[in-house]
Design a protein around this nucleic acid. Structure first.
Lengths: 151, 151
DNA sequence: TATTGTTATACTCTATAACTATA
DNA sequence: TATAGTTATAGAGTATAACAATA
């Protein structure tokens, strides 16, 4: 890193900032997950919603939005796409709420997504000393929790 | 966290995934930085570019784009905005390259941005045990470096 | 009154393709 | 041939406002 800076003559003074490396690391993991999930094909957010519905049969799209910090209005096209792909089903419970569940095809896709995500997680965990992985996770959870207090 | 899941009845099975907490933590820090920099007012990317130009007088916008992983085409409006705000200057070196530098007003804004970013970094570092901060940084750098190999 | 689902809309960020002028 | 800067454009992701139906 330092050698690169001397070679190119460019002083990358922000490379050691926590916020910056956090953003870059997040982008790298998200990009890699997107590439891995393209084999199914599902986007990371679609795979995540599928998994959450699988573990919470009968939940609503508003509940999922709250968990994932996605606004109600932005959940609409996401759920519509999964519905159009035949991976989930809607069933009215209220006059205003609709229970979500996985179709048989959705179950298959969910399992495939889980396998890909599991491999993806292991791949990146393997970059670090095993003893450091839990510390990284808890540090990130602590930082992420700082957002719940404000917004 | 576990207690929350039991209270709400919602099984948030992705909350412990590295990629997910990484994305959430990054969003929280970026959002907080955006809020803090609104006092100037500069966006995080503008403040970052200002700082890089200050440390690399005479560099080109293409060089900055390479460092920040921003495509040439997307650098154009960013540089144009900083130019319109009177914070930077362009001076032709080649027929095709233009050297960037800070104006006196840009220097003032750069210093203000540095102070805000410094306080922001310290605020989030203070959430963690001091001994864990360096480990977090190096883990994130290791993960971010995995992106340089692919794309 | 508050919530669910929805529509419409706008803004940011990111990506590609294509062009020019130059090295 | 490769690079710097630019234009146009398209796709995500995210934000707000407003509405109808329901609790």
């Amino acid at each position: 890193m330092k050698e690169d800076q001397i070679e190119t003559g460019f002083r990358d003074v922000i490379a050691d900032r926590l916020g910056y490396v956090l953003r870059r690391a997040s982008g790298v993991m998200m990009g890699a997950l997107g590439t891995a999930l393209a084999a199914i094909p599902l986007r990371p957010v679609e795979a995540t919603i599928l998994i959450l519905i699988g573990e919470n049969t009968g939940c609503t799209q508003s509940e999922i939005g709250r968990v994932l910090a996605i606004k109600r209005a932005n959940m609409v096209p996401l759920i519509a796409d999964l519905l159009a792909k035949g991976l989930i089903e809607k069933r009215p419970v209220d006059g205003r709420s609709q229970a979500l569940s996985l179709t048989p095809q959705g179950l298959v896709q969910r399992d495939a997504a889980e396998a890909i995500i599991h491999a993806h997680e292991r791949r990146f965990e393997a970059l670090l000393p095993p003893s450091k992985v839990a510390a990284l996770r808890s540090a990130l959870v602590r930082i992420a929790a700082e957002g719940d207090e404000e917004g």
